[in-house]
Design a protein around this nucleic acid. Sequence first.
DNA 1: GCAATGACGCTCT
DNA 2: CAGAGCGCCATTG
Length: 111
Amino acid sequence: MIAVSYQKIYDVVRRIPPGRVATYGQVATLAGLPGHARQVGYALHALPENSTIPWHRVVNARGGISPRAMAGAELVQRQLLAREGVQLNARGQVPLTQVRWVISRRARQSV
DNA sequence: GCAATGACGCTCT
DNA sequence: CAGAGCGCCATTG
């Protein structure tokens, strides 16, 4: 059973455009849950693999892929990002200064 | 309702 | 920027 609060988070993640990435904190804030970055990660963790949510576009505040229970899954995320043109550096992180998702104020209101 | 858990963020070093 | 430590809080047992 997925909590209703997660729906809000999924909704934000769905809006992340290809070739762009957002941080957990950013997603939390856009979802109307400022400071609940952990719940964002928790929500994505409970996300089924067959989901259409672009969860791979969500990274931590440093642009890196957080280690999760199943190692190797981060490799998948790296592949999905590369497929969208997001190149990762040697540290396995993305240049946030360039690919950080910047949503316009008007775009947020159109929810 | 209490205690433990966790795909994190912020601050200091 | 990278690493270590502390804090926040919904979800779960």
